[in-house]
Design a protein around this nucleic acid. Sequence first.
RNA 1: GGCGCGUUGGUCAAUCGGCUAAGACGCCUCCCUUUCACGGAGGAAUGACGGGUUCGACUCCCGUACGUGCUACCA
Length: 507
Amino acid sequence: MKVRVRFAPSPTGGLHLGGVRTVLYNYLFAKANGGDFVLRIEDTDQTRYVEGAEQYIMDCLKWCGLIPDESPEKGGPYAPYRQSERKSLYREYAEKLLASGNAYIAFDTAEEIEKMRKDHRIDEHSHAQYDSRTRGLMVNSLTLTPEQVNAKIAAGTPYVVRIKMPEHQTITLHDMIRGEVSFDSSQSDDKVLLKADGMPTYHLAMVVDDYLMKITHAFRGEEWLPSAPVHVLLWEYLGWKDHMPLWAHLPLILKPDGNGKLSKRDGDRLGFPVFAMNWLDPKTGETTKGFKEMGFLPEAFVNMLAMLGWNSGSEQELFSLDELVHKFSIERVHKGGAKFDFEKAKWFNQQYIQRTDDATLAELVKPYIEEGLKTVDSRLTTYDLRLIVSLIKDRCTLLPDFWAQGHFFFATPEIKEEETMRKGWNDQKQQFFTDWVAALGTLPTWTHDTLENSFNELMPKHNLKKGDVLLPLRIMLVGGKYGPGVFAIAEVIGMEETVKRVKRVLG
RNA sequence: GGCGCGUUGGUCAAUCGGCUAAGACGCCUCCCUUUCACGGAGGAAUGACGGGUUCGACUCCCGUACGUGCUACCA
């Protein structure tokens, strides 16, 4: 049987780190087994629908290089892939469950349910559930006669279809990560399967679609584990038990400080992204930063995510997507949640930057340089981006670092270390630099070697040592105490600019 | 509260009964570099707790504690 997996997000907002990791594991598993990876949009909750979210999710997958084989955009043999467009198809299965007595119709209003929850609360901490203990008290097809039910339906009374959970039945499921997991069926309430608006809930839609789409392996977050018995029962009641996919409940990604699931809020609070790409909330107009816009390379982002909860068992940490496809195994996924560490995430990106060839890197960096150039007045007319990139990549972790670390190659920098430069400044140094600038014009060639040689030869004549004048020169050219070798910088910016920057200080 | 899941350094983690408990990130020291990095060499830092099982337990079992998830006509 062909392996088929799916990622099934609801289009309600930005795509979370954990979501991307779920996509990744799906993708890796599918590709490793020669299977299909399908994207299915779970938009059954009309009230939570957010404009643009679906397109955004697809853009994120594209950026990460995790392209689905079937999707709403691409289509496929099991189309449509948007649950809202499959609406009409779910009712049939709800009826089937009704007919077999595994589901029932309920007419209760939200207020009535709320009242029941309060009146029958087990203790002060928890409200009663709509389940075997309370369903006999409610207005449903279990307490009403068939005639009454039909009359209500005929009268247009809104109703939902609920699963009838059995009492005290042990439900066991095999999880690829956790092994056998058991539940008492009485713990779960009679979940709504079909809502009053005719839309299915996640529970029904997921089972029906996984069956119809021939899904063989289902990966989802650990938060779904408690409702898994409902799903197992649904597969059974619908008569599809032999087709139920193999489950894998993925561990959660936790916030770095304290405890709990990592949320968008944590990112805002701690200053790192949580979403794959920038997300502009159409309702609030607020933009939440994404890894892409922060300057991450998609390969680094994906690699980092793969290692959050999984490892190959070797010491290797850097993997190409192709390598991951071959080495990933669901059995080696951790059971426990992992705290997200942004420092480690940056390290991955830094590693990828160092390993990216200069020409490719130059293209990636270009927009950031162009952006930076808008903020300066006097800019150099020509520059070799590839060469500059090779000179500064060592000290760059994120793409925007290239501007911060290399702006002086593109524009005359502002002197930020005036005091350091002027420290111990005297006529001797003034004279030295004046003479050196003059000597530059007589150089046979303009290379960092000839520059350095002329500098070194001139120093003793003014009774100066490297330590006296090298740092001042750096600050003249760079503006601060950082960057590649000074003479390499001088070579790149050329004689005219070098002379200009030194003379600017000499006055 | 109930139920589920989990628990090796600050973080990610190896170990599938033999441990003097890998490695990576971060941190610290030193070297390289008369800048900042990169790189190199070191260092501090870990099995939640209590019982078993066993010649031997981080590894298996049971409790406890702690954490976390769920407990909607949301996914």
